[in-house]
Design a protein around this nucleic acid. Sequence first.
DNA 1: GCTATTTGTTTACTGGTTGAACTTATTGCT
DNA 2: AGCAATAAGTTCAACCAGTAAACAAATAGC
Lengths: 396, 396
Amino acid sequence: MDGPVRQRSLWQHNLALVLGEVGPAAPTSRARIAQATGLTRATVSALVDVLVRARLVDEVGPAPRGGAGRPATGLVLSPAGPAGLGLEINVDYLAAAVVDLTGAVRHLEVRRADQRDRPPAEVLADVAELADRACSAVAVPLAGARLAVPGLIDARGMVRLAPNLGWRDLDALGPLTTAPHWPGLPVGIDNEANLAALGELATAARERSFLYVSGEVGVGAGIVLDGALLRGTHGWSGEIGHITIAADGPTCRCGARGCLEQYAGQEAILRAAGVPAAETLPADLAVRRLVELAGAADPATVGALAAAGTALGIAAAGVVNLLDLDAVVLGGSFAPLAGWLCGQVERELATRVLTAAWSPVPVRACGLGTRAAVVGAAGAVVREVHAAPATWVDGG
Amino acid sequence: MDGPVRQRSLWQHNLALVLGEVGPAAPTSRARIAQATGLTRATVSALVDVLVRARLVDEVGPAPRGGAGRPATGLVLSPAGPAGLGLEINVDYLAAAVVDLTGAVRHLEVRRADQRDRPPAEVLADVAELADRACSAVAVPLAGARLAVPGLIDARGMVRLAPNLGWRDLDALGPLTTAPHWPGLPVGIDNEANLAALGELATAARERSFLYVSGEVGVGAGIVLDGALLRGTHGWSGEIGHITIAADGPTCRCGARGCLEQYAGQEAILRAAGVPAAETLPADLAVRRLVELAGAADPATVGALAAAGTALGIAAAGVVNLLDLDAVVLGGSFAPLAGWLCGQVERELATRVLTAAWSPVPVRACGLGTRAAVVGAAGAVVREVHAAPATWVDGG
DNA sequence: GCTATTTGTTTACTGGTTGAACTTATTGCT
DNA sequence: AGCAATAAGTTCAACCAGTAAACAAATAGC
């Protein structure tokens, strides 16, 4: 039970409903939208006109269609509509992306550099610069920006803990919003795995409920339930890395024993694969090295990945049993390694998920690869425009 | 994005909003509701009148209140409003309960008898009889009925699998709805743990997100997220019993190894406690025996319960880390044993939940004890009336 | 007994959807 | 070519729900 519903909210809801029927490529018509939504043609016409005037929707030439009758005016999402700016801070790179209203990636820049021992202010200044460049590179109005961070973000947008960056109780948004660099854009912040999961939902996922497991230095997760991201009361859901695999397993840095991270975390995999000087290796190089070794069928590496996949499968099976999800997606640094992981994960799911016999749970690599978080962050902004188009329209 | 929003839906929503402001005991007034909801007094008046005419809300004498001004007409939920009928089939008993609109339990009957090797038709006939008696015992109109079953229920209401009853692919609702015994009441069906979790939410729970762990012959769970029950795509969420505690643990009947059920399931506890002839003991007697032994500080039993509590804690910690929940509630046969379990569960949560230091996760016994599922089932019907009062009102 | 104060109702108005008539643009048949 | 059939989109009066403001009712305090 949230607020009261005035006539205005009704209009806003129906505006979103109509926009939701307009796709990026195949043109619809007002009549088809009326059919699909159950609204009358009159209402749809009024709403579409608003969307067209606000440049969220473009009228295109009629699609040549058989049958009698006046041809429909085609309607598609406008590439000139408000776009989303995605930003990402990660252990060994910074990134910015712009996704427009149609879902197309209009800009993408990655700057590789180790961010671990830099003062946060410097990192954020670099992010602001990337954002600036993204703004000027695209000729679309921006609806907002979203920053992806590998850590726990609380409800007020503070970074409570980002262990791999060495950040704690930091206001990462402040420096970005107050910077004079770019207009008064609404900037949000969210966990990296959450945004990557949203990215997967928007682009590749056929399922409306899935578990997105993100390989980072640790192991994170984003859970999408019925098309919505699960955030939890405080906003720090998705900590899959400390699910127990074996109660008497190796001690984890969290203090408990046998956590998933001790089997499928990056350090654990590198150690098991016997990669020398693993600790000092930057994260991206380490993953590339693993891909090389596994590609060359190095037995230790293949074994290490199989073990990691088994552990991932055990954890994922528990989650799927509990939440009745439709799929498991491997992302982050697991994406390039998915070829060696998926099989094991799928095997564990097949044996451990109670309902696997009736409805098997597919496992696949993230469609956006390692760019899922930035693109997902930008997409999350676009998603908001889709959900509440009234904000971006004349009659507020 | 669901259906279109007509003016009618707006009215329905606001009707529910207004009803939501009316409590069972302390009377409110039209003016206070207007204040709380943000609607105008005029609108609230109109909506309240509808609710009063439909007998969902009663006008009571004005509460003697200080200060000047015309005294308010008190408004409370009507005990004569549509009530919910809850039914439960379990391994060793059948039960029926009626909960009225105010949340009061108006009728409760439990019939103990082993249901395991009886033909489903007979069991359902007994349930229908219990339901009949409940109908005639209370002098309130019924809004609907809900049947709680210890098993997987699919989206169409079929019992896909109820291992402890020996049921599989059974239409449990058919015999109930077609029975001439009682009026054309809408009857629903749901998993026992889910309904118990809803019962806890409606009565005892202060938190809006929690994990309800139900001790049965196996171990089930209901997950409440932000005041809503999590059902999963197919409706079979909550299978916590096969979360892995130790990858190399004892083999489970599900085929995997080290499942929670092998540590905290009823058989496992009885075995560890050294209760003789555990297999042949009816489930309720077994629990009573455990309470006796633990109460007498029998070392084997106390140890068995501690081990079960540890396993439950490990599983619950994983879930809480993943979903960011606020509390863990022990129900079903864990409720009477909670005194010996809570401590261990809480200890594991404290060490394993990453955010436990900032926001500790309380563990407690289910407030409704072993009656949670029936009462929760009845309450679920009442909940629907609260959510969609328009259905029970003149103007549809 | 009068005023201040708060509750609840009445009334004219506004915003948004509906339904039906109407206009426009095409196909297919003669 | 001409005309009916058909479908898309628009216009307009009616309707429905909520709003704002004035008004009636009932109490406390002076």
